[in-house]
Computed example of a mutant assay.
Amino acid sequence: MSASGRPSFLGRTAITGVGYTPLSRDSGMSVHALAVMACRAALDDCGLKPSDVDGIVTYSLLNDSVYGQAVAAGLGSSELTYAVDLSLGGQAPCAAVTMAAMAVDSGMARNVLVFRALNGRSGKRIGSTSYESLTSEFRYPIGFNAYPQYIAIWARRFMIETGFSYEDLGHVVSVQRDYAALNERAMQRKPLSVEDYLATPFIVDPFRKADCTIEVDGACAVLVTSLDEARSHRQPPAVINGAAWTTPKGSGLDHADLFSWPDWSKNCHHYLRERLWKSARATPGDIDFAEIYDCFSMVVPMTLEGHGICPTGGAGEFISSGETRLGGSLPVNTHGGLLCEGYLHGMNTVNEAVLQIQGRGGARQVKKNDCCLVTSAAMMDGSALVLTKDEMQ
Results as ranks from 00 to 15, higher is better:
residue 335 H to R: 11
residue 302 M to P: 00
residue 225 T to R: 10
residue 333 N to F: 12
residue 304 L to V: 04
residue 261 W to G: 04
residue 308 G to L: 13
residue 290 A to M: 11
residue 320 S to W: 01
residue 310 C to P: 08
residue 248 P to M: 11
residue 337 G to L: 10
residue 269 H to T: 15
residue 282 A to M: 13
residue 309 I to Q: 06
residue 278 K to C: 01
residue 317 E to Y: 05
residue 233 H to D: 12
residue 352 E to Y: 02
residue 267 N to T: 11
residue 289 F to T: 09
residue 267 N to E: 09
residue 240 I to A: 03
residue 255 H to G: 08
residue 275 R to Y: 00
residue 254 D to C: 12
residue 342 G to V: 11
residue 310 C to V: 11
residue 313 G to E: 11
residue 336 G to W: 08
residue 300 V to Y: 01
residue 251 S to Y: 13
residue 303 T to N: 00
residue 329 S to T: 15
residue 263 D to P: 02
residue 296 F to I: 04
residue 321 S to P: 00
residue 227 L to Q: 11
residue 244 A to K: 01
residue 332 V to F: 09
residue 299 V to Y: 03
residue 234 R to D: 11
residue 296 F to E: 04
residue 228 D to C: 04
residue 308 G to P: 12
residue 327 G to K: 10
residue 244 A to P: 01
residue 316 G to P: 12
residue 281 R to H: 13
residue 350 V to S: 05
residue 272 L to G: 03
residue 237 P to T: 10
residue 260 S to M: 06
residue 246 T to C: 14
residue 328 G to F: 04
residue 288 D to V: 07
residue 348 N to P: 07
residue 348 N to I: 05
residue 242 G to W: 06
residue 233 H to M: 14
residue 290 A to F: 08
residue 298 M to R: 00
residue 296 F to W: 05
residue 292 I to K: 06
residue 255 H to K: 08
residue 253 L to T: 13
residue 232 S to A: 15
residue 335 H to W: 04
residue 317 E to P: 00
residue 275 R to M: 00
residue 238 A to W: 05
residue 272 L to S: 05
residue 352 E to Q: 14
residue 339 L to H: 07
residue 293 Y to E: 03
residue 226 S to P: 02
residue 290 A to N: 08
residue 329 S to E: 07
residue 252 G to I: 14
residue 323 E to I: 00
residue 343 Y to C: 09
residue 351 N to F: 00
residue 331 P to I: 10
residue 276 L to C: 01
residue 322 G to A: 08
residue 343 Y to A: 06
residue 327 G to P: 07
residue 347 M to D: 05
residue 309 I to K: 04
residue 344 L to Q: 02
residue 235 Q to V: 15
residue 256 A to D: 10
